[in-house]
């Protein structure tokens, strides 16, 4: 009996018509489903983005777990790249330190002057912004989107729209919040638009991401005086970002001005979320109500039109 079974088995294994695996109808069905999902994503169906974010939230504990064995590998990579850049970095820091030493003395003088003037003018003190530092647990930077997931969410009072920075400057802003995780849209993303001021003349413009490493500067006024190397910082217009967050410097010529960001968005490990609420939210609503009721007729129109995602 055993011999017969073995014999049958032998016959079954060798009497194949052709070697290799064969395509099943299920494969065609799966291709059809994947194509349908891709089409829905292209149409930007709200259900797709909602399902994607929910699923991503459920998978966040898996990502956190996967980071534990991955952390030593990341650390080795970081130390290798640090060793490679060490000599250049040392020289750069030495030169920067010399400059900063002269600026330090000047800054101290100016600081005391400003304090005296503020006391004289009875200036309202600047609002201090709370922040929270969080770990990056997933990097979604690819051909379609430039974003990272951080392990702080609604439970830690993180809200949509909050700016995100690291030691070098602005990184992006929160666009999705779940109880334990949040998604940060990076400044380089196709859908990122940041109101900025450029250079010593404080020229206004918009920093527009295009999924490249260096985002573009758009809506710069005609004849604006900007040059390569000018500092770019947030202007605070629109109330999404506080004024004065560093972004980078102008590069690439005046025909297509771009910004070399100070923050290395490819190597984000920890970022800080600024608890910055839009200071104009209440004011704008109040103005519109007044206009309707006829109390005020000089309501200011918005400075920038509502922005759309670039094609």
């Amino acid at each position: 009996m055993t011999q017969l079974k073995d014999h049958n088995l032998f016959l079954r294994r060798t009497d194949r018509e052709a070697p290799g695996k064969h395509m099943r109808p299920l494969l065609l069905l799966l291709v059809f489903v994947a194509s349908g999902l891709l089409l829905l994503s292209r149409l930007d169906h709200s259900m797709v983005s909602d399902v994607r974010w929910r699923a991503s939230t459920w998978l966040s504990p898996v990502l956190r777990g996967a980071l534990i064995p991955a952390e030593p590998v990341r650390e080795i990579g970081r130390s290798i790249s640090a060793q490679v850049d060490l000599s250049h970095e040392l020289e750069r820091l030495r030169q920067e330190n010399q400059k900063l030493e002269s600026w330090k003395w000047r800054a101290q003088q100016l600081e005391s002057k400003v304090a005296d003037l503020e006391a004289l003018a009875k200036t309202v003190p600047e609002q201090k912004i709370d922040f929270l530092t969080s770990r990056v647990i997933a990097d979604s930077s690819g051909v379609f989107v430039r974003s990272v997931t951080i392990d702080a969410g609604r439970k830690r009072n993180v809200k949509e729209g909050y700016p995100v920075i690291n030691g070098d400057g602005l990184v992006g802003r929160i666009v999705d919040v779940a109880p334990a995780v949040s998604r940060v849209l990076l400044a380089t993303d196709l859908n990122s638009r940041i109101p900025v001021r450029i250079g010593p003349n404080a020229v206004r413009g918009i920093l527009a991401g295009d999924n490249s490493a260096r985002p573009r500067l758009i809506y710069i006024p005609e004849g604006a005086n900007i040059a390569n190397g000018d500092d770019v910082a947030t202007s605070g217009v629109g109330g999404v970002f506080p004024e004065g967050l560093r972004l980078g410097t102008v590069v690439g010529g005046l025909s297509d001005p771009r910004v070399a960001l100070r923050a290395d968005l490819d190597r984000l490990s920890y970022v800080s979320v600024l608890f910055f609420a839009d200071p104009f939210r209440g004011v704008t609503g109040d103005l519109s109500q007044r206009k309707v009721s006829g109390e005020a007729h000089n309501a200011i129109p918005p400075v920038y039109p509502r922005l759309r995602a670039a094609p």
Partner: peptide
């Protein structure tokens, strides 16, 4: 696709 926040199905 879900983890990278890219289009579903790609």
């Amino acid at each position: 696709d879900v983890l990278t926040q890219g289009p579903l199905g790609y």
